[in-house]
Nucleic acid binder design. Structure first.
Length: 568
RNA sequence: GCGGGUGUAGUCUAGUGGUAGGACGGGGGCUUCCCAAGCCUCUGGCCCGGGUUCGAACCCCGGCACCCGCACCA
């Protein structure tokens, strides 16, 4: 077994040499926190996303959204990011060093992080704070945004989204309608997020522009949420904020109240998903955030962490966001983002109500009559003269301007703000984790292999003539065309020896290699080699596209091939 | 952002002021009936900018990037 850090540098080396990913803008000296995905990386990323969609969108019947990267300032004021996503920095006027203002004030004032620029400045002046490095004078606190700021048109301030979630929240009413006004409702979004990290590091693990896949799962907090039967028995490795490590089955975790059932449900789905990606389930855990670690929107968060060569890395966050987001967007936009909780039986109630008599109100109040009528009909039952306020003016409405009626009303439900459970996937981190957990070196030879599942492998097949002879080459090239035409990514290779070609294929995780040999000319069969076992089986050339397709969808396994060949 | 380290071909790496070398890889050819065999041949490099020097991959300054630690990661 190579040491952990060994794995990491080997992955980085393969990634660049073979074209998974590399640092962006290298010819201009690079730019920290930005990476390019090459041919293999883009294919792998696409395949991971495709699998994600199958697990979390198609199987669940969730809805997809693709909303813009750039959003208006007010939305991010509402979401809390414009505020909470900001640090105040002060600079030393002499040596130019920058410091976080609240850090400097720790120990001088209580909760310095709660102060605004003015408050921080006052505290700095009162405590006569100077530059800790050179004793120089400090500047007025300035905001440092962890969001990228930009302009729309000439002067409209806007931000690049730090998460895709807000696009979903602000469209809740549309999705609610598209879901035929039913909860629970899941909306997924795959896209880029942007965070102007102070010091990005560790390759794909901390980017300034990154790929994410998020689901906002809207629920009625008063409804019970049953865990689907098919997930029963899935074991969740939990690390609670008290530091307790427990293995617990999903239904038990939900029943015992350790987890909100909807959180438990997503965790179980995540375990399934990671398993089909080829992540080693003995190296994952769900870690509960400490109270002070929680994001401004969250009541409870669990990170799905994967053990990599750099330790436990957060790859997926599952947050209970409550009604924070929808409520905030309602406040700031003034729009209704509620859902309707239907009663089993519509409630019938008899109410005494006022009904305005327009023929009296009209002549009496002229253009104000309509407004007065509206107000009258909305207020509680009253008798006698009524005083109401219209546009700040107090108006007395005489008794003969309305009548009292008794109505039977039928109320179908009540409006409420749904709660949200959000699983948020860092695709780049996931991709890196997949690479690390797939990597191994063959015992005898030390050759490098990526044990990528056929589902996500960027290239499904290599097609080789055993030796570089015209007759074999011709057949191999025909096979290549047929496989390509079936929509399966593959390549043809006749360079060097056959062993070298297998090794090259192993290193980028090609699951199957097709070799054309002399028997192929006699009976139209080829050998198909399984990457992980290095074993070969003979199959008919005519079956190849279909076989490869089934293998790559994991409908059949390599071991099934003999039976499959006999049957057909 | 701070402190420390590093930056030589696609990758890994040698080179302490005097013509930049190797290994692997990659291309072409030969050979080869199954796991990086061999032979021939080609390809390609000192992070960027300034300075010191007759002369800089090497010394100095600045920048950028990467790595380690701290801080940060809502």
């Amino acid at each position: 077994m190579p040491s952990m850090n060994d794995v990491r540098s080997k992955i980085m080396e393969i990634a660049k040499r073979r074209g998974f990913y590399w640092r962006a803008y290298e010819i201009y000296g690079g730019l920290g926190g930005f990476y390019d995905y090459g041919p293999l990386g883009t294919a792998l990323k696409d395949n991971i996303i495709q699998l994600w969609k199958e697990h979390f969108v198609i199987r669940e019947g969730f809805l997809l959204l693709d909303s813009p990267n750039i959003g208006p300032e007010l939305m991010y004021v509402a979401s809390g990011h414009a505020d909470k996503f900001t640090d105040y920095m002060v600079k030393c006027k002499k040596c130019g060093h920058a410091f976080r203002a609240d850090e400097l004030l720790k120990g001088y004032v209580e909760n310095p992080e709660k102060l605004d620029d003015r408050g921080l400045w006052n505290a700095i002046v009162e405590n006569k704070l100077r530059c800790p490095d050179c004793g120089g004078e400090l500047s007025y606190p300035e905001r440092f945004h962890l969001m990228f700021v930009t302009r729309v048109g000439l002067d409209k301030k806007a931000f690049l989204r730090p998460e895709t979630a807000q696009g979903i929240f602000i469209n809740f009413p549309i999705f609610y309608r598209l879901n035929r006004e039913k909860l629970p409702l899941g909306v997924g979004q795959i896209g880029k997020g942007f965070r102007n990290e102070i010091s990005p590091r560790q390759g794909l693990l901390r980017l300034r522009e990154f790929n994410m896949a998020e689901i906002e799962f809207f629920i009625d907090p008063r409804e019970e949420f049953p865990i689907p039967q098919e997930l029963n028995g899935i074991s969740l490795p939990l690390l609670t904020r008290e530091g307790k490590e427990i293995k617990i089955e999903v239904e038990e975790a939900a029943k015992s109240g350790i987890l909100h059932p909807a959180m438990a449900y997503f965790m179980a789905r995540i375990v399934e998903f990671l398993s089909s990606l080829g992540i080693d389930l003995s190296r994952i855990r769900f870690r509960q955030h400490f109270k002070e670690e929680l994001a401004h929107y969250s009541q409870d968060t669990w990170d799905c962490e994967i053990n990599l060569s750099q330790g436990w890395v957060e790859v997926i966050g599952i947050a209970y966001r409550g009604d924070y987001d929808l409520r905030r967007h309602m406040e700031y936009s003034g729009k209704d983002l509620t859902a309707l909780r239907r009663f089993k039986e519509p409630k019938k109630i008899r109410v005494k109500k006022l009904r305005a008599k327009m023929n009296v109100l009209g002549p009496l109040f002229k253009e104000k009559a309509r407004k007065i009528a509206e107000i009258l009909e909305s207020i509680e039952f009253h008798e006698g003269e009524i005083e109401i306020e219209v546009d700040g003016e107090k108006i007395k409405v005489p008794q003969d301007a309305y009548e009292i009626v008794t109505e039977e009303e039928s109320i179908g439900g009540e409006r409420f703000v749904p709660h949200v459970v959000e699983p948020s996937f860092g695709i780049d981190r996931l991709l890196y984790a997949v690479l690390e957990h797939s990597y191994y070196e063959r015992e005898e030879s030390g050759y490098k292999v990526l044990r990528l599942s056929p589902r996500i492998a960027p290239i499904k097949a290599g097609i080789f003539p055993l030796v570089n002879k015209e007759e074999l080459v011709e057949i191999a090239k025909k096979i290549e065309t047929a496989v390509r035409n079936a929509g399966i990514s593959c390549y043809y290779d006749d360079s060097g020896s056959i062993g070298r070609r297998y090794a090259r294929a192993d290193e980028i995780g090609v699951p199957f290699c097709i070799t054309v040999d002399y028997d192929s000319m006699k009976d139209d069969t080829v050998t198909i080699r399984d990457r992980d076992s290095a074993q070969q089986k003979r199959v008919s050339i005519s079956h190849l596209p279909e076989i490869l397709e089934k293998l790559c969808r994991e409908e059949i396994s390599f071991g099934d091939l003999d039976a499959y060949e006999e049957r057909s």
